[in-house]
């Protein structure tokens, strides 16, 4: 553990950057996916088109995406964030739309019968019922992002990927273990927190 004890500041900085990247990407992805999802939920044509283009975005190879983004966004945090957002938005969109689709038509009818407006129905009935599915999507997206954020190292954006990738290149097992171990811990931590939140939701019980 000689390397670890001598490089605690480097490791701490990598962990912090990694967590920041994931948190920022999740927040931004939610801000994009929520309104988009609500917009297309009742428009099947738009919905298909949006999910299709989201899937294409999701399947773009990250390195290729980076080479394309560097002339526009430069190196560092911004292009890494954008790449991660393109990973998270499709997951969140699918989860939200699946959640909204799972609301029983009878419940929607009842809400309509009670005289709720479109907006009231959405916020008081449909979204709360879709929330467990959305949270599930958030869990999947966050765990995906924690591991995907390792590629940020390719564009000098820091994070735990820097340790893993240089460890692989140098055959430096300790570096790889520290980097990969912290990625796993971070993923478990976020997943556990969101899981606890999900279990405490009244709608899920």
């Amino acid at each position: 553990m000689r390397w670890t004890s001598r490089n605690l500041d480097t490791i701490g900085a990598a962990l912090l950057t990694h967590a920041e990247l994931v948190a920022a990407a999740l927040a931004l992805a939610l801000l994009i996916a929520l309104p988009l999802g609500l917009l297309v939920a009742r428009r099947p044509g738009l919905r298909t088109a949006l999910l299709g283009s989201a899937s294409i975005l999701y399947s773009l190879p990250t390195l290729a995406l980076f080479a394309l983004l560097v002339p526009v966004l430069g190196l560092g945090f911004a292009p890494a964030l954008l790449a991660l957002v393109t990973y998270a938005v499709p997951v969140l969109l699918r989860a939200l739309l699946a959640g909204l689709a799972s609301v029983p038509p009878a419940v929607v009818d009842a809400a309509e019968g009670m005289g709720l407006t479109h907006r009231q129905r959405l916020f008081r009935v449909e979204l709360p019922l879709a929330l467990p599915a959305l949270l599930g999507g958030l869990r999947v997206a966050s765990v995906t992002l924690v591991s995907a954020a390792t590629v940020a190292a390719y564009i000098s954006a820091g994070g735990l990927g820097t340790l893993i990738l240089s460890g692989l290149d140098q055959g430096h097992t300790e570096k790889i273990l520290v980097g990969a171990g912290l990625v796993t811990l971070l993923a478990l931590l976020i997943d556990g927190t969101l899981g606890a939140l999900q279990r405490r939701l009244p709608a899920s019980g």
Partner: peptide
């Protein structure tokens, strides 16, 4: 230091964009 770039293509783009 903007090191550890993931390949020749990215390093070259970074130079051209004035990022390094």
């Amino acid at each position: 230091r903007r090191v550890n770039l993931g390949g020749t293509a990215i390093a070259q783009q970074a130079l051209l964009a004035g990022e390094i």
